[in-house]
């Protein structure tokens, strides 16, 4: 049985609930990610913080079909709002109700979870709910590619 731990990315890039929003933005920028796991001081997985969680708190109206003057006004307003919240804590902007998967779960179970959920990443934890990494939709597709190739081979045999 193929397990999550064979396909996951073993990365512990994470933030704590008492870290500041500015640090989250800087880390997301450096590692080119729009979501990070949130953990406590013992590395227990608590939830996620998405760039969207921050954006929706700083943009007064959604950017849409705006004329250029309104866009600049809103951009300045967003920058000012961000300046006001950048020192606030992650716990105020994180999503707590987030599904995680265990590293020993089967990839087939993971497939149904990831398809039913909107999350682009599922965070992987061990038996004690300590963060161990993440698994993405791309990892799921890669797994399915392998399953397909195995099927082709067995049909040829």
């Amino acid at each position: 049985m193929s397990k999550v731990k064979n396909y996951m990315m073993r990365s512990l890039n994470s933030v704590c609930q008492h870290d500041e929003v500015e640090g989250v933005i800087r880390l997301m920028h450096k590692i080119e990610r729009s979501v990070l796991p949130v953990v406590d001081d013992e590395n227990t997985f608590l939830g996620t913080i998405y760039i969207q969680n921050i954006l929706k708190n700083i943009i007064p109206e959604r950017y849409g079909f705006l004329d250029i003057n309104k866009f600049i006004y809103e951009r300045n307003q967003a920058a000012e709002n961000l300046n006001n919240i950048k020192g606030k804590k992650v716990k105020d902007y994180m999503s707590k109700k987030v599904i995680s998967v265990k590293e020993d779960e089967s990839m087939d179970d993971m497939a149904s979870i990831i398809i039913k959920n909107k999350e682009s990443y599922l965070y992987v934890v061990n038996k004690e709910d300590k963060l161990r990494g993440y698994i993405s939709r791309a990892d799921l597709l890669y797994y399915l590619l392998e399953v397909g190739e195995e099927g082709d081979e067995s049909r040829r045999d």
């Binding site: 990315m9 073993r10 990365s11 512990l12 890039n13 880390l27 590692i31 161990r132 990494g133």
Partner: peptide, 14 residues
């Protein structure tokens, strides 16, 4: 490092 199945826990610097 991850290709070696090692868990990475890095601080990314400028």
């Amino acid at each position: 490092v991850q290709d070696c199945d090692i868990t990475t826990n890095y601080i990314f610097t400028e």
